[in-house]
């Protein structure tokens, strides 16, 4: 592993897998959202690592992509957690296995 980029990409892959495992195996909807946030962060780490070790970092492409990704992820977290609170008020549960009705 002489290239430092390989190390960063492996860490990002590991974080993505952990986030995916959390999103797929947990019952609580908030934990599912936490898993999605971890996956988005792993993607950001890839973007920043490629920006750092790729050619032409002065063009700022990867950095800008990561900054916009952070902003979109913040919007996603706000809406997702708002939905979880709304569903909890309605169905009195945050268990994704009990959320099996489209109509309240």
């Amino acid at each position: 592993m002489t290239n430092p980029l390989t190390g960063y990409l492996l860490v990002a892959a590991l974080l993505f897998a952990i986030g995916l495992a959390g999103a797929l195996t947990r019952r609580n909807a908030i934990l599912v959202l936490i898993g999605i946030e971890l996956m988005l962060n792993a993607a950001n780490l890839n973007l920043i690592a490629f920006w750092r070790y790729g050619p032409h970092p002065e063009m700022l492409t990867g950095m800008m992509f990561a900054i916009f990704s952070i902003a979109v992820a913040a919007a996603e977290a706000a809406v997702g957690l708002g939905l979880v609170i709304s569903i909890y008020r309605h169905a009195k549960t945050t268990d994704v296995e009990q959320m099996n009705r489209m109509k309240g």
């Binding site: 892959a13 993505f16 897998a17 195996t25 947990r26 934990l31």
Partner: peptide, 24 residues
């Protein structure tokens, strides 16, 4: 705290990590 189908989810995540790590 884990869902009934947690084995499937863990297997999918492990497979994704294996593919990503192999490619990297």
């Amino acid at each position: 705290v884990f869902s009934k189908s947690w084995v499937v989810g863990l297997a999918i995540a492990a497979a994704v990590f294996a593919v990503l790590g192999w490619v990297v």
